[in-house]
């Protein structure tokens, strides 16, 4: 046997072996990509909780890979975390909670959009689709109040770091910049801020609050109704679970005073109404909502559609969040409508 021939043989063996190994890998990945989750991901007990919740959810017709990506589509980070999980499984280490990184939360948005284009478009048209740049580089805000860790409770709740890791400097003088320029165009309040996908379809059950400090979602049903007071008088607050979710971020100050901080609880004639009675859930628009309850005219003959009812018009006596009977009627019985 000549030296070249031996060399060729070794090379051939090498080629076949590598082709074989590559095929093994591809086969394995394909198994995990296309296989039934009960035989793949969910065969590890660490996944059974998540899997059984999904099996009972309205999203059960979708395969894991539709939202989470499959083994053939996943990025290196996810693959590594999965392999790591498998290793942990066989070493019988205590299982770590399964968490999505912000990258995956944002990737998941695309899956949401694919099936819910209208809701997605509504959200996109709303202020809730505000980007990191819009929120954290707002000069007016930043000059007034120093950025703080607490901002991340409601904006950028999936951000995987502390406030100093997101934006610099932490001061009221600026100039401010995001540490990672790519974040500028990312939404800071993604779908999963208010939704949990592995939940039954009935009612508002996908309405969940993502609590950053617990790194978990809590069903809106379980959230408390925040007591609100005007002076010393308690204000009637709608028991609508969806409103509880709103209140978590559109919150009053710690003294729970009506209209304090970010509170928008309606008082006056609209006391007790839910946010959702007027605002659409994804666009947040309240446009033309008055007419739902006030057919064309109010009792006194004024056209509700022509009033300035906006929350932002603090000077308007028709501000829908505050307007009270006495604002127009000076403590007297209104005259009969004509």
């Amino acid at each position: 046997m000549t030296v070249t021939r031996r060399f060729k043989l070794v090379c051939a063996a090498g080629l076949f072996t590598s082709v074989f190994l590559l095929a093994c890998g591809a086969g394995s990945l394909a198994w995990f990509h296309f296989g039934n989750p009960t035989n793949t991901c969910a065969s590890c007990h660490e996944m059974t909780g998540v899997h059984s919740a999904w099996s009972a959810s309205s999203h059960r017709t979708l395969h894991c890979r539709n939202c989470h990506g499959g083994s053939l589509t996943l990025d290196v980070h996810a693959l590594r975390s999965h392999v790591n999980r498998v290793v942990q499984h066989f070493r019988r280490s205590p299982d770590q909670p399964i968490r999505l990184t912000e990258k995956h939360v944002l990737a998941l948005q695309e899956a949401c959009r694919a099936c819910h284009p209208q809701s997605f478009a509504d959200w996109q048209s709303s202020r809730h689709s505000a980007t990191y740049a819009r929120i954290f580089l707002d000069i007016t805000h930043n000059r007034t109040e120093q950025l703080a860790a607490d901002c991340l409770r409601c904006h950028g709740m999936f951000f995987g770091g502390n406030i100093e890791d997101l934006v610099k400097p932490i001061s009221t003088t600026g100039p401010w910049a995001l540490n990672d320029a790519a974040k500028a165009s990312q939404p800071a309040i993604p779908c999963l801020a208010c939704h949990q996908v592995h939940t039954p379809a009935a009612g508002f059950q996908s309405a969940h609050l993502y609590v950053r400090r617990e790194q978990a979602s809590f069903s809106a049903d379980l959230l408390p109704i925040t007591p609100i007071t005007q002076g010393d008088h308690p204000v009637k607050v709608s028991p609508d679970p969806r409103q509880r979710l709103c209140t978590q971020c559109h919150a009053p100050n710690a003294f729970r005073q009506l209209g304090s901080a970010d509170d928008r609880t309606p008082s006056g004639v609209h006391e007790g109404l839910s946010c959702l009675d007027c605002h659409s859930s994804h666009s947040n628009s309240a446009k033309a909502s008055c007419a739902a309850c006030h057919p064309s005219n109010s009792h006194c003959g004024l056209d509700v559609e022509k009033m300035d009812t906006s929350f932002r018009s603090t000077g308007s006596k028709h501000n829908i969040h505050f307007v009270a009977c006495g604002d127009c009627h000076n403590g007297q019985r209104p005259a009969k409508g004509k």
Binding site: E145, Q146, A148, A149, D150, R153, I170, N253, A254, F255
Partner: peptide
Amino acid sequence: PACIHMRSCVGFACPVN
């Protein structure tokens, strides 16, 4: 900024400094 009156203050770091 001014205090936001966290109930969890002593024993904790201030979330708004």
